[in-house]
Amino acid sequence: MTLLTCDKLSVSYNRITALKNVSFHVDDGDYLCIVGENGSGKSTLIKAILQLIGTESGTITLNGIRQTEIGYLPQQTVVQKDFPASVFEVVLSGCLNRKGRNPFYGKAEKALALEKLAELGIATLKNKSYRDLSGGQQQRVLLARALCATRKLIVLDEPVTGLDPLVTTELYATIKELNGKQGIAVIMVSHDIQGVLESANKILHVNVEPVFFGSPSDYLNTSVGQRMTGGTTHA
């Protein structure tokens, strides 16, 4: 089933065209990697999908999933790195739009948060302060939060920026597992094309306009694909 369809999407702000005529779709269980150079509009595309910014033309269609059911892992802000919040509080906030009109979190939400913490192997960090964690641990917490919001689709914006290689590899492995075992569709914006080439089953390369949309193997056969992956590689 197709979860998300983008059809001829165009976005501009401050009179600059950020995206033009971008079309792609994400199905159940897909792992889409969005790549492109700096300033190519990758983050803008994410924000458009999440309705954080308005679009000029084109459509974004959600199917079988609501706006409130998309898990989002944004780039971390300076504010957050130093924020006094316990890990549990942060993860629980992912359930914000699940609890409906009730102003308080119920047992179900709390149980869900604990479950996600366990899934990502950070259950022991539950009562620690978020600001005392390492970069990698913080990303896991935010990932757990995103998982609380969704059962079907997560959107990750450059999740491994600033993390050391070992932690990066671990994080990719975790995401791959979520995609494979739990069937959660993944949309990831990344600079690190090498790292995700194994896991992704779709690549979208944008440079304001769409450059490529298709499978990784096809991507590697294009000139731009080869440039991005640093010469010919073996799939």
């Binding site: 954080l52 989002y72 906030s93």
Partner: peptide, 13 residues
């Protein structure tokens, strides 16, 4: 939620 991460809060509705 809005204080900690406004982008996430907005994205989730």
């Amino acid at each position: 939620a809005v204080t900690f991460d406004e982008a996430f809060a907005r994205a989730t509705g």
